[in-house]
Write a protein that binds this DNA or RNA. Sequence first.
DNA 1: TAGTAATGTGAACGATTATTCATTTTTAGC
DNA 2: GCTAAAAATGAATAATCGTTCACATTACTA
Lengths: 195, 195
Amino acid sequence: MNRKKSEKYNRIIAAATKMFAEKGYYKTRISEIAREAGIADGTIYIYFSHKDQILIALFEEKMQEVLDNMKRQIGLEDDPLAKIERFALTHLRLIEDNKDMAEIIQVELRQSSKFMKNYHNLKFSQYLDLIEDIIREGQKKNLIKKEVIPSIAKRAFFGALDEMSRYWVLSKSHKYDIETAAKQINSYFIHGIKT
Amino acid sequence: MNRKKSEKYNRIIAAATKMFAEKGYYKTRISEIAREAGIADGTIYIYFSHKDQILIALFEEKMQEVLDNMKRQIGLEDDPLAKIERFALTHLRLIEDNKDMAEIIQVELRQSSKFMKNYHNLKFSQYLDLIEDIIREGQKKNLIKKEVIPSIAKRAFFGALDEMSRYWVLSKSHKYDIETAAKQINSYFIHGIKT
DNA sequence: TAGTAATGTGAACGATTATTCATTTTTAGC
DNA sequence: GCTAAAAATGAATAATCGTTCACATTACTA
C-alpha cells in the first residue's frame, strides 16, 4: 500500500498541523498528536520513524500544494506585471484560508535548519524562484527596469508579503482586508520596478 | 548590586547568544551555556529563574540597543525619504555586524509567542513604528502619496529588509553586498511610495 | 472459516535535562 | 586574619516524553 494515501497518514498530518500551529513543534507531544488524530501513540511510529519526520512530511506536502497552486494561478496571466499582482493576491489569500499551515511555515520552517541538519527546503526556494523568473521575463520584455537585480527583488517582494502574513497569522483582528494589503504592496513594488 | 551590571550576568547573556544562534533555544542545554560562560550550571540560576528568562532578557537587551541605535541614526536626517534610506542601510549593517543576534531575532523571536504565553514584544513593535512615523511625516510634507497606508507600508518595507536579513544570516556566501541590497530595496520602495 | 499477514494499541522503558540544594569558595568589613 | 554574608559549585533529583514492543485486533486470501 502507498503510505502517502493511507487514511491514517493523512489524519496524522492533519492533527500535527493543528497542534504544531497551536503550540509549536517542541511543545507538541506525540501523545497530543495521537489524541487529536484519534489513534494510539504507537500508531504514529508505523507511519513516521521519528517526530521530526512528521514535520518534514508536513512541509513537503503543504509546500507542494502551495507551489502547484501558485504555478497554476500565475499561468493564468500573460503580462509579467499582472503575474506579480496575482502572486501577491494568491499568496495572501492562501494565508487567510490556511492559517494553521501558514503559521507553521512562518514559525517552524524558519528554524527547521536548526534541528534538521541536512534538510534543505527545496520547495521553498522554488516558490521564491517563481518571482525571480517573472522579473526576468519582465526585463526581457522591457517592462521592468534593467537595474533591478532579480534575486534581490524576489526577496524584497516576498518579504513584504511574508511580513503581512505574519501580521495576519499572529494577530486576532485586522485593520484591513487581504485585497487591500495586496493592492498596496503591489502598488509600491510595481511602481518601484517598472520601466 | 545591580544584577544587570554584573559581569556574570553579561557573560551568561553573551554565552546564550552564541549558543542559541548556533543550535536554537530548545537544542541548547543549560550546561552548554554554563560551559561557554565558564561557570557552573547552578550559577545560571542565581541570575535567571528559568531557562526562558535568559531568552527574554536577551531579547530585551538586544532590542533596546537596536532601537536606540536606529533612533540615533534616523535622527541624523531631516528628509523623511532620506530617513527611510538610512533605516534600510542601518538595519542591514546591523545584521551584518551582529550575526548571532540577528539569527536569534530571525528564528527564536518569531516563535517566542509559542512558548512564552504572555511575552509581547513591545520593543519590536516600537522598532516597526519608527517606519510608520517616518511615512506619516512624509505624507504630511507631501513627499509620500496619501493613498499609502502607513501600517501596511511599514510592514512591507520591514519585511523586504527582513527577508534580505534572513538570506544574509542563513547562507554562507552572498552574491552582493549590504550596500547594494539596501540601495535596491530603497529604490523599489521609495519609487513606489513617493508623490 | 481457518490461517496469516498487516495494522493498531498503550503501558512501560530509558534517556535526557532543567532545576535544586548541601557544601565550598570568595568577598568585604573591621 | 577573623567572620559572616554572598556567590558559586556540581552532583543528585525528579519530571518529562520519545520510542519500543508484546500483545490484540482487523483485513485479506484461498
